[in-house]
């Protein structure tokens, strides 16, 4: 495990939050007054990860060149924390030719082979792919690891259980990261899941399972570091479930009428909490808070400008890239 860099983790969380907040603004900006999900500069479903920054930042702080991530339909925080180019990612979300996937993927299908980053919009189905990436690392004799990210709702899918079993049977260098944000769209965990903790489910496969409470970035950092060290050393897979927070709706446009704790959600925001911790430790000044925020604002604004300046694809481009 490397040295804990608190300022870097805080900065990364702020950067992600600024990104998600601005994408939310941009997404809604030209969809009013008659809201239409397919309209506007950013069309389609939009699943934002504000509040879930500790999950991505705590894990990605340990990753190195060649390590892979498969993210689910809510992928931006892991993409940014893993070093995916913000400009190209934003252009992809805007459906432009300068995007990561030339406008073919969109926000749920971000592919960055240089960083071994991919997503799948199908619940839990990215996990088997991550196992395959881990299998490739194992076969090539590298010490790279694959991070398989999914939500707690996905843990009721067969693909989740097949992946845990395969990873355990083959001792794959894969770390399953479960983001438990309490809600599978509108269904609470206790109505959907037998056995409250997915860390427990790991035990059924002979795999260490850890649950990180309180959306705590440093606890996530430490658990992920231990799991990643273990995988790199050839000791096999682990599972980390973090109790995190979906600050926004399942997707943009979700009124969240089903969510009784909605009024108090902002009180659980992990970023101000972490800022307070760092200030208490004397590792973060007010000036730094302001400059980190200003840098994030500028970077995100530039990425949005980049995206908007990138040309739209031509209709006939749809026929390209079916086959290599």
């Amino acid at each position: 495990m490397g040295e804990l860099d608190r300022l870097a983790m805080y900065t990364q969380m702020v950067r992600i939050r600024q990104y998600e907040s601005r994408i939310m603004q941009e997404y809604h900006a030209d969809k009013s007054p008659a809201w239409d999900i397919g309209a506007g500069l950013i069309p389609g479903e939009m699943h934002l990860a504000a509040g879930q920054e500790p999950a991505a930042v705590g894990v990605c702080a340990h990753l190195k060149k060649g390590d892979a991530i498969t993210a689910p339909h809510r992928p931006h925080h892991f993409a940014l924390a893993h070093g995916v180019d913000m400009n190209k990612m934003t252009a992809e979300i805007y459906g432009r030719t300068g995007g990561l996937c030339k406008g073919k993927g969109g926000h749920m299908h971000l592919f960055d082979p240089e960083n071994h980053f991919s997503c799948s919009g199908i619940i839990a189905q990215g996990l088997p792919v991550a196992c395959g990436q881990a299998l490739a690392f194992q076969r090539k004799g590298t010490d790279n690891v694959a991070i398989a990210v999914t939500g707690e709702g996905a843990a009721n899918q067969g693909a989740f259980h097949e992946s845990l079993n395969l990873a355990a049977v083959w001792d794959l260098p894969v770390i399953f990261v479960i983001e438990d944000n309490d809600w599978a769209i509108s269904v609470p965990k206790d109505a959907s899941t037998a056995g409250a903790s997915n860390a427990d489910r790991a035990a059924g496969y002979g795999m260490p399972g850890v649950r990180v409470e309180d959306n705590d970035v440093e606890a996530m950092y430490e658990a992920a570091g231990a799991a990643i060290d273990r995988a790199r050393a050839g000791d096999g897979p682990s599972l980390i479930e973090i109790h995190t927070l979906r600050l926004f709706g399942h997707f943009e446009g979700d009124a969240q009428a089903y969510r009784p704790e909605l009024a108090t959600v902002n009180e659980r925001d992990p970023i101000p909490k972490y800022a307070a911790t760092l200030q208490e430790l004397g590792e973060l000044t007010d000036d730094q808070i302001a400059s980190i925020q200003a840098d994030a604002d500028a970077e995100v604004d530039a990425a949005i400008e980049f995206a908007k300046a990138s040309p739209e694809p031509a209709p006939e481009d749809a026929l390209l890239h079916v086959f290599a």
């Binding site: 088997p128 395959g132 990436q133 299998l135 992946s163």
Partner: peptide, 23 residues
């Protein structure tokens, strides 16, 4: 030999192929 787990091992084949192997 794989477990009887087609989603798991076909997915693993995909992941391995993405990383440059030829399963």
């Amino acid at each position: 030999d794989t477990p009887i787990s087609e989603t798991g091992f076909i997915g693993a084949g995909i992941g391995a192929a993405v990383e440059g192997l030829r399963p």
